[in-house]
Write a protein that binds this DNA or RNA. Structure first.
Lengths: 342, 342
DNA sequence: TTGTACGCGTTATCAT
DNA sequence: ATGATAACGCGTACAA
């Protein structure tokens, strides 16, 4: 077992002082070319790797940012993470990812862990409206900037990066209405920071088309009990069917909900789009492989991650506290496919 | 902006020594209950959080493990990561994830970064057979254990956690043959550490059924050029069609390949399974929402992550160097659905 | 029961 | 051009 070399080891072996070695490796102008070359060669040969932990302790810069999401294996999230990762490659930041699993307490724990470990900044898609406001605020106050993404419905004063939820929902709803459907079931997640704006867009569209919002055509799923989502959708559809009040269209407010719904409809042998049209927010890469190909509101997932990351780095590097925070709403794209077109 | 409190601050404020404070917070028996209470209360009130960086420098333990995968947003990978995460919650480890993007040089860079930053262990799904063998070996030699998962076709001596690729492929192939298909196109990734065993299982099954392996019915996709995979599949299918040598079944060796293939077949208006049966390795959560519902070899993704993680922790905590490494092959499950059943 | 002093590996300041 | 030394925050052996 070969232990890691340190500056001290090299200094001893080369009969130099630690500081000379340190300066050589960082290519300081104070050191002669010959010495630099000798040190570098020696370091290379014995594959010296600087100890970032020590450097961090000294400089106070961790060169690490924390990311808190509800679930890494969610397709939308994993694509946003991809964007964040791309940014981090350019800016030389490491990424630590923590999951909240849509549980406020786990989210608080994640924030605590990241704070202890030391991060230069935090990207977070919060569990609910204003979840852990105090903790995030305190993190900010201690000099660690925070940027919100995706679920931006939160009172924390900072940059926020999401999409124009209301407009996107409006457009998707209108697409259903224009194809002749008026009995639209709206399925969404409970209090997940985007649901409200999407519902508003949905309602506004109904109103503009003189359709009354029917509370029977509304279902809220509890994201913190992820396994129950499927059941609650099944129950709702069965109920509507049994009461002779079946819808002819479904609006899915998240990608989990939308793809689950498609599978359920297939199992219930309900024809899409003949009997029920479906449109949804979705970011799976395979909507065209779905049954049937799914009409979707596509979010610029990678871009969300990338933009949020750059905004965070901007805050990290800011010399003076920023007061002028902005909320960035990226554009979505409506892609009609077979699930909503007869 | 409120700066972070340190032990020193608390000691000063409470007129105690740093070590008394330190010992109080770690609940040392040496300190009187009253002092401990006072210190803890004060720390709580001023929300003191210990500096993990300093602790790491002192103890040499980072309580962090590194994970290197080719792409976090791949469904299979993100589910494995989920398993790793679950394990880390129990064992109180932090996770740093790096992406290799199926590029040997990026993989090497990731290893370097993790080594600098300091990790207690590494989980890796390597880019190719024996990729960065030297670096991984050297990491091991410096006392950082490494565990391979998923792509375990690598000469590094260590624990490896994957699936019984050969048997799984054999069973999937046999399923196609039993449903009457003999002209089977095998689509796989080039040199990705699982492809070989899966191909072997495939070939063995053909042989056992007295079907000759036809090189025309074999396609290798370059994973490091991910965008080109779709094109190469389309080209292959068109070629087979044009030469009047179309297959009546497709075996997809990875989930990316399989779902892409389904989408392509739909666009080419080739009926599945009437004209072409499809079976594949896949771990998307929605195979039953696919078009048509996809027959799959389901891998125990989360379990792979969990087991690999626990094996790694075992190595980290091992008092003496382990010589007796094991390769764990978890069981897969074949789920026939509409894509392969007439 | 509490305090003193040192070291982890690095960077930075100040001498030589 | 090179070296000595302090400091980052914590844990711990040892002293009081």
């Amino acid at each position: 077992m070969t232990e890691r070399k340190t500056l001290k080891d090299i200094a001893r072996d080369l009969k130099l002082s630690i500081s000379t070695v340190s300066k050589s490796l960082s290519d300081s102008y104070e050191i002669s070319e010959s010495t630099k070359k000798m040190v570098k060669d020696y370091a290379e040969k014995h594959n010296y790797v600087p100890n970032k932990v020590a450097r961090t302790l000294k400089t106070g810069k961790t060169n690490t940012i924390g990311v808190i999401v509800f679930n890494i294996s969610n397709t939308f999230i994993s694509q946003v993470l991809d964007g964040i990762h791309k940014g981090s490659q350019i800016e030389k930041y490491d990424i630590i990812i923590m999951q909240s699993r849509d549980d406020v307490n786990l989210e608080r724990h994640a924030i605590e862990v990241l704070r202890m470990r030391g991060i230069d900044g935090l990207l977070i898609s919060p569990v609910t409206y204003n979840s852990n406001y105090e903790q995030l605020k305190s993190l900010q106050d201690s000099g660690i900037p925070v940027v919100l993404f995706d679920r931006v419905d939160h009172d924390l004063q900072t940059h926020k990066v999401g999409i124009d939820n209301q407009i996107s929902a409006y457009d998707a709803t209108e697409h259903l209405i224009n194809s002749g459907r008026k009995k639209i079931l709206h399925i969404t997640g409970k209090n997940i920071g985007v649901s409200e704006a999407r519902l508003e867009g949905f309602k506004k569209c109904l109103k503009d088309h003189k359709i009354e919002f029917d509370n029977n055509f509304y279902l809220e799923c509890d994201y913190s009990k992820h396994d129950e989502i499927e059941d609650s959708i099944i129950k709702k559809l069965n109920y509507l069917k049994a009461t002779g009040n079946m819808v002819n269209a479904i609006f899915g407010a998240t990608d989990d909900i939308t793809t689950l719904t498609l599978g359920i409809l297939a199992e219930m042998d309900i024809k899409v789009p003949e009997e029920v049209s479906v449109i949804g927010f979705s970011n799976i890469r395979i909507p065209k492989s779905l049954n049937p190909s799914l009409s979707t509101v596509v979010q610029p997932t990678e871009e969300i991650g990338l933009v949020a990351f750059h905004k965070l780095v901007e805050l990290i590097n800011a010399k003076y506290p920023i007061e002028d925070y902005e909320t960035i709403e990226l554009k979505t794209k409506l892609i009609p496919r077979r699930s909503s077109v007869l």
